[in-house]
Design a protein around this nucleic acid. Structure first.
Lengths: 214, 214
DNA sequence: GTCTATACAGGGATAGAC
DNA sequence: GTCTATCCCTGTATAGAC
């Protein structure tokens, strides 16, 4: 876990990682200062360096943690909308809208993703790999598993579930992500819903099974 | 044009903007130093400040210029592959591959786009608007015009050409852009070709006209 | 008269010392 | 928890050179 060691009170440590998530997300890696993170956490800078060797270690640590948390949140949304599908189109649209909200929220979670994407050229390859595995790739696999289940019910005609999950994500999520620059610029709710709806319609033209076409 | 004035030799100015494109693209806005840009341009730092009021002005200026140049390059690719279509699927795949190469090249052009996306929260709204208009939105409109022409020939069944252009771009380009983090991480050529091909296949399942289906 | 080279003031950053 | 050593950056100023 790329930390200095187990030293220090756990509650201080949590305050630091939360503060780092907020400040790195708001300012980006280079602009964020350790002073600002310490102030946001309500601890002294010395305490920060007691838990994390340096700025980079702190950043990479919260990046991986954030990635895993976001994956968990998206997993909950999949369980809510895709586990017991009654109205396929509606559930696919609702999931797309909720996922865009969760991942692109200006709040604590989404913003850090921007900072990571901005710093990608300065992140060690193995850490980037781990971040991808814990985040986007994990969500992609989760979604592919749900599509396979829907295919078994005859609701989708997919052969390659991972490819279908990728294209669903492109059609219903990346348009919004790009338009909002991964959450930096707000996008109106109606716009998110509109894009999600036309994205799902396109997706269903590719993969709509017999039941979906009826 | 957000410069200090017309003072100075034009060839020096061009050297400065080219150097700024390279250095901002490589280091990002915050890390790039005016010293490094001056060195890369082979001029003194005073000359840089003689042409551009400050770092931000220089950055925004080269951002807009780069956006327009990239749009022009993509326009040439469209003319090459989409003006006289013989084999629709093949031409759509070839254009997708070439565009991905052009826009995501680690060279001078593509890299600056990363820097802009990273700084989007710190860019004035009107400049961001101008950058979008000169770049991604202009390319989208160009592509939509080509799709309309293809629809008139019966090769595509599109009602909303802008939407079709958006979805083509998502399916054939954004998957690559995201995987390479807008050019920061190299993606193998075969991978680019594979993604472009499956993206076009999906696109044609949505919009393939009668002739395309034959 | 513009360019080069260098130096410098002022601010802010990291990381460590006390 | 504060204080500080050290470094880097922006932007300006001061020299002289073609």
């Amino acid at each position: 876990m790329a930390t200095t060691g187990g030293a220090g009170r756990p509650e201080k440590r949590k305050a630091i990682t939360q503060a780092a998530t907020v400040v790195f997300g708001r300012e980006g890696y280079v602009r964020a200062s350790m002073d600002a993170i310490a102030a946001e956490a309500g601890v002294s800078k010395r305490t920060v360096y007691n838990h994390f060797a340096d700025k980079e270690t702190l950043f990479l640590s919260v990046a991986l943690q954030n990635s895993a948390e976001l994956t968990e949140e998206v997993r909950r949304l999949m369980a809510k909308y895709l586990d017991r599908v009654m109205d396929l189109r509606r559930d696919l649209v609702d999931f797309a809208v909720e996922r865009a909200r969760a991942v692109l929220s200006a709040g604590e979670h989404g913003a850090l993703g921007r900072a990571i994407r901005a710093e990608v050229a300065n992140i060690p390859a193995d850490v980037l790999e781990a971040w991808l595995e814990a985040g986007p790739i994990a969500s992609l696999r989760d979604l592919a598993a749900h599509f396979e289940a829907l295919a078994e019910r005859g609701l989708l005609a997919v052969e390659d579930a991972v490819l279908a999950a990728e294209q669903y994500t492109l059609l219903t999520f990346h348009g919004i992500a790009e338009r909002s620059f991964w959450g930096a610029v707000p996008v109106a709710d109606e716009e998110v819903e509109r894009i999600a709806a036309v994205g799902v319609d396109a997706f269903l033209r590719i993969y709509g099974g017999p039941a979906a076409r009826a």
